[in-house]
Design a protein around this nucleic acid. Structure first.
Lengths: 252, 252
DNA sequence: CGTAGAACTTGACGTTACGTCAAGGTCAAG
DNA sequence: CTTGACCTTGACGTAACGTCAAGTTCTACG
């Protein structure tokens, strides 16, 4: 009913500094300020805070969030406008990626590719520097150790499992099944279980945001051509995405 | 041989403030500082500045650019690492987009869609707020005026032309043609010419960066499922992208 | 009751790459 | 000498807090 700043921060999964900031900018004032200056919050404040954090996770700016919460702006309209900016950003990134790829290709004919074993089920047509940047150098090293630790037989098994999953996805996508049908959903389940074996993914971390991760993973398979290539081209990636989305919404 | 700060700024297409900033952080010192404090640059400085701006357009940070220019870092490695971060960002965006779409769908069953005519060849399964955010409200209005100005017959013609282009792309992608073959390249040429008719694109603006835009446009067709849908699904989008890339590199 | 440690407070700087005034010197032309 | 055009340094603002720093208050313990 009456929480201190740290208590409500933990309840909502944020920090006390953030709460002070929201107080400063007038986004969320404490319910009550005691004589000693300590901030206190009640459950109404908690609800408001949770809405703020939800919208923030969607990428909205604090001023936009304030407008929505004050009723000055329609939530759906604000999100729709935000969606436009998100897609615009994605386009800008796609443009930069194309240019950077072109530049790298021009600089060197594609040397220094990743170590020839794949590290987590992708292909090896990628630069090691890129991998290290993407997952961090220690993550790469950890994944490398994990991979080596599997041993010869384990690596064969892992590759087989990965390839099998990939084959089954391609087959399912090609046979006109519904992404939310039983067979595709079984595949999605297998996919998520497979992810649990990949170090560094939220699915491998207890308490990780599996649903959100899986939800976005499908979008990434569609967005990044190299991922989609493992699922029978972009057409297959679309199928995988739809199946994963359906699965995530139902089961996770 | 010896330019003032404004002169070199115009030559390189940037501002004097930027040059002062690069001087401040030690990225690009003027060749000579006159007794009155005025900065002067020679052609070696111009070359360095142009390399800086090139790398900056690829999205590298100024510290990373400095390392590359000082020879402390391999350019290809730096770009490869940067590519990893770019893809990571794209994934994050894809995740957010998925979440925002889900939230909007949950909020309202998909009402307030865009006006039923399409404004630039896409479909109308998109919110108006999104369009306005993406291209700006005036751009939307301008496009709207342009569209209305076409008149009944003009709109029919435009739609036919758009649909024809789309059909031809789908047919070409489906018939196993090579993206860099003559037929696909002819399509790419038509595509770029078609873009010239769309207000707001660099292709419609004299002096716009057509090559870069077209290069990235293909990536966007692949990245954004709704674009790809106009080209026979993501598989078709891949083909369009490859054809456009080939065309842009050869002709633009 | 004194005190250590935990929790709280209000500043204030750092982060990215400059844009944008502000206040004031310098230079060429008339 | 005056009027602009061009130059200088200095400093604030940007998004959303993280991270000290210095000082105050609460709680538990001997």
């Amino acid at each position: 009913m009456d929480w201190s700043i740290q208590e409500i921060a933990k309840l909502a999964g944020t920090t006390s500094r953030t709460l002070r900031h929201y107080d400063d900018i007038g986004l969320l004032a404490p319910t009550r300020v005691a004589g000693n200056g300590y901030r206190h919050y009640d459950e109404r404040a908690l609800v408001r805070l949770q809405r703020i954090l939800l919208l923030r996770e969607l990428g909205l700016g604090l001023p936009a969030i304030a407008e929505v919460l004050e009723g000055d702006a329609d939530e759906a309209r604000a999100l729709g406008a935000h969606l436009g900016w998100l897609r615009q950003e994605q386009g800008r990134l796609a443009r930069q990626i194309a240019s950077v790829e072109k530049t790298i290709t021009a600089l060197e004919g594609g040397e220094r590719l990743m170590a020839d074993e794949m590290f987590d089920g992708f292909d090896h047509t990628v630069h090691q520097a890129e991998v290290e940047q993407r997952w961090g150098a220690e993550a790469y090293a950890a994944g490398d150790r994990w991979w080596r630790g599997l041993g010869e037989a384990g690596q064969r098994e892992w590759k087989a499992r990965t390839a099998e999953l990939s084959r089954d996805w391609i087959a399912a996508a090609g046979s006109g099944l519904a992404p939310d049908g039983a067979e595709a959903q079984a595949l999605a389940k297998r996919h998520v279980e497979w992810l649990t074996g990949v170090p560094g993914t939220p699915a491998a971390v207890p308490g990780g945001d599996v649903a959100g991760y899986v939800l976005g993973l499908g979008e990434m398979y569609v967005a990044d051509p190299r991922f989609g290539a493992n699922y029978g081209g972009q057409a297959g990636a679309e199928f995988v995405r739809d199946a994963l989305r359906s699965y995530a919404e139902r089961e996770l």
